[in-house]
């Protein structure tokens, strides 16, 4: 009854609970997740648009996503949302509080799944693309991934997206902040939310300047992110964000960048999996062969030299395949 194959059939037939269960299996990783990935492979043409939404905590991401989902459903889509929130590094617990913002607006128009980061290195990066494929295999699209834009993992996750929406709110820093490296650089669409608050126009101006400089330094290629002013609590501007996402995707398709982005994201996913695989091997090696550490522990060798020695041994022990 709970075999992945059976669950997938039921999920494709529209049973929410079966899809919910499959998402848990994918999230946990391991053999069941690999089995699901195999089964889903032929059913995922990769045509469903993937939209990443990120930004600092409290900028209004979930509320805006609720409105976006409404727009998507209103234009014939069957949207699904993956809402990622952080796990506590101390207890592993999490408060997944995105759904509360979305559901009130989206009113059951989307399949919403909350996902905790669960702390393990690379785990989230593997679970997100797998979950998105599962959504597509079950007929969902467009697909939205929402992450808090703090930390490399969260920013990386948005790279699986065709279009990344970065949200900012007024009062969170001046032009110097806007020019720091990081989140703003990955934006395909920029949203200044809480546009009804004082300082929203200043924030817009700072972002415009930042984009202008990108032009001068030659970093901005053929796409200048549109800056859209929204008030997510009322939904004002959500239709423009939806439109901008579609415009960006059309641009990607016209310039053959869609395929390039997809390939880059597959490249990254394979690399993530290999890294995880090798990391597991290394942990196992160190716990079963503690003597390998002795030289470094006793100060006869640097950690770097010990690591190089162990890496060499580990890799040469792998049979070529």
């Amino acid at each position: 009854m709970t075999e992945p194959g059976d669950l997938l059939e039921r999920a494709i037939a529209g049973e929410r609970r079966a899809l919910g269960r499959l998402l848990s299996l994918v999230e946990q990783g391991g053999e069941a997740a690999d089995e699901i990935a195999e089964m889903v492979h032929d059913r995922t043409p990769g045509e469903a648009p993937v939209i990443g939404v990120t930004g600092a905590p409290g900028t209004g991401k979930s509320t805006l996503v609720g409105h976006l989902v409404k727009e998507m459903a209103g234009t014939g889509g069957q949207p699904a949302v993956l809402a990622v929130d952080p796990s506590s590094p101390l207890t592993g617990g999490a408060i997944l509080g995105d759904r509360i913002r979305m559901d009130g607006v989206a009113g059951g128009r989307a399949f919403i799944r909350s996902m905790a980061t669960r702390g393990h290195a690379g785990g989230l990066a593997l679970a997100v693309p797998a979950a998105l494929r599962l959504f597509e295999a079950c007929g969902y699209g467009p697909l939205v991934v929402e992450t808090v834009g703090v930390g490399q993992v969260e920013v990386d996750v948005t790279r699986t997206a065709d279009t990344t929406v970065v949200m900012v709110a007024p009062g969170m820093g001046d032009a110097v902040q806007a020019n720091k490296s990081g989140l703003l650089e990955v934006a395909d669409v920029l949203v200044v939310n809480k546009a009804d608050r004082p300082g929203a126009d200043d924030t817009r101006r700072d972002l415009e300047h930042m984009l202008d400089l990108g032009r001068i330094t030659g970093l901005a290629q053929d796409w200048r992110p549109e800056i859209i002013m929204t008030t997510a609590t009322t939904g004002t501007g959500a239709d423009q964000v939806h439109q901008a996402i579609q415009t960006h995707r059309a641009h990607l398709a016209e310039t053959a960048q869609l395929e390039a982005r997809r390939q880059a994201s597959i490249h990254q996913e394979v690399l993530d999996r290999v890294t995880q695989h090798l990391g597991t091997k290394a942990s196992q090696y160190l716990s079963t062969q503690p003597a390998a550490l002795t030289e470094a522990l006793e100060g006869h060798s640097t950690p770097a030299a010990t690591a190089a020695k162990i890496s060499k041994r580990l890799l040469s022990n792998q049979p070529p395949s």
């Binding site: 506590s88 207890t91 617990g93 999490a94 408060i95 997944l96 509080g97 509360i100 559901d103 905790a116």
Partner: peptide
Amino acid sequence: ARMLRDAGMEVIYLG
């Protein structure tokens, strides 16, 4: 919600 988070659970808060 906070108690359960600190007990290591994942809390989906609907409110």
